[in-house]
């Protein structure tokens, strides 16, 4: 029997270009980050004779107030942002998934007990609580990551819990119950794959947010300590030169951040679009 065509195929989903471009951009960022590892030592070398140089062949993105090469520092910053955002999101998503499964599939009381602290954390604007945690733990990238993880867990927990609850009324989960499958095996075999796409979307979306939050924390002064080439710290540094015309010091790291977040967000959109096309 021929497969029946029920939905009209849309043109947009057929075009491969956006996906290819996104993947190339993300690959470029990874390359930049890896290159950053090799030039890490040079990123903090001050050169007082060479401060605030305009972008040139020698310094593609110019130099900053202490004569450091901005491109080198942007590359190092890429490594820091990508790695730390990835760590935060992986820890946060795994934590959130565990909470969500316990809440969505476990007993009522467990749901209540676990959701209360989640809601309490969600009651804060995310960045502010991250800030508070980072301050309490002492300035540094480590505290920043911990702060981000703590605030990301409830985001994952709430979204995935909703999905897990919805999965309970999905016929294939009910079918698994009528077969006689124990609850924990239903969770692993049926519900976790069911959450897969939502999880992927959340991971991508939160990765972008984590990159921004990390920069914001460093910008305020509770993330990276000064000589570290973190994007937010670099933007903060660039602020004093913005008025006097040395725009590249602050604009360059911000542009790098913007490009990365946009690429990740486009990727998120594509995953989302593919899911709704499948449904």
């Amino acid at each position: 029997m021929a497969v029946t065509v029920t939905a009209a195929p849309t043109m947009a989903s057929r075009r491969p270009w956006p996906r290819i471009i996104t993947i190339i951009v993300l690959a470029a960022y990874l390359t930049l980050a890896i290159a950053g590892i090799f030039v890490q030592d040079q990123s903090n070398v001050a050169d007082v004779t060479n401060t605030l140089q305009q972008p040139s062949a020698e310094h593609l993105l110019g130099t900053d107030g202490e004569g450091r090469d901005v491109l080198t520092r942007v590359a190092v910053g890429a490594g820091i942002s990508i790695m730390l955002a990835a760590i935060s999101v992986v820890l946060g998503s795994v934590g959130g998934l565990i909470v969500a499964l316990a809440c969505g599939l476990g007993a009522r009381w467990l749901d209540r007990v676990l959701m209360a602290p989640m809601n309490a954390v969600l009651a804060f604007p995310q960045l502010l609580l991250t800030m508070a945690i980072a301050i309490a733990l002492g300035t540094g990238l480590q505290s920043a990551v911990i702060g981000i993880v703590v605030t990301i867990i409830p985001v994952f927990a709430v979204t995935l819990r909703g999905e897990a609850l919805r999965s309970r009324s999905e016929a294939f989960v009910e079918a698994a119950i009528t077969i006689g499958l124990p609850r924990w095996r239903i969770a692993l075999r049926h519900v976790v794959p069911y959450l897969g796409t939502t999880m992927t979307i959340q991971v991508a979306a939160n990765f972008g947010n984590a990159v921004i939050t990390l920069a914001a924390l460093s910008y305020i002064g509770v993330g990276a300590r000064p000589p570290t080439a973190e994007w937010g710290a670099m933007i903060n540094d660039g602020l004093q030169h913005a008025v006097s015309g040395q725009w590249w010091v602050g604009v360059a790291p911000g542009l790098a951040l913007l490009g990365l977040v946009i690429a990740v967000n486009i990727l998120t959109d594509q995953i989302r679009a593919r899911r709704s096309a499948d449904a």
Binding site: G208, Y219, I235, V243, V251, G254, L258, V261
Partner: peptide, 22 residues
């Protein structure tokens, strides 16, 4: 996409560079 990807403090910096300094 640009709006969601830009940290507000950097947007401020860019605006100052363009509309104030330049």
């Amino acid at each position: 996409l640009v709006g969601l990807g830009s940290p507000p403090f950097w947007v401020g910096l860019v605006l100052i560079v363009v509309f104030s300094a330049q």
